[in-house]
Amino acid sequence: MNVPTDLKYTKNHEWVRAEGGIATIGITDHAQSELGDIVFIELPEVGDEFEKDTAIGTIEAVKTVADMNTPVSGEIIEVNGALEDSSELMNKDPYSDGWIAKLRMSDESELDELLSAEEYKELIG
């Protein structure tokens, strides 16, 4: 499984890339593999505010449905509109073209509670 070292992770198989107070979030390679073919995602609206570990949207795969949680608190400033028509990007390229949303973080110290790539790798075995 691909686990880039420059990202932070959660136990729920989400990743965060934090730069200058902005967090880009998505699901991990392991998560997309477990879900199988993703066919639809319900995205949040720009301007919506969320607490960390709450659902910002829903990911529908052929066989199952899963909540997309945000690993950090903040306001949505951008969503990946390409996923509306090409949800398979989350399967093909979960860390780059398959990103889900960008948030303006309200509490950057939350990043310290997240897992490192090393810790996440251990978690998924």
Binding site: G36, D37, V39, V62, K63, N91
Partner: peptide
């Protein structure tokens, strides 16, 4: 294949992907 326990057997739920 992704193998899962099904009806008392380990069975393949998918190989390359359900849609394909």
């Amino acid at each position: 294949a992704k193998m899962v326990p099904f009806a008392g057997y380990y069975m393949p739920i998918q190989y390359s992907g359900i849609v394909e």
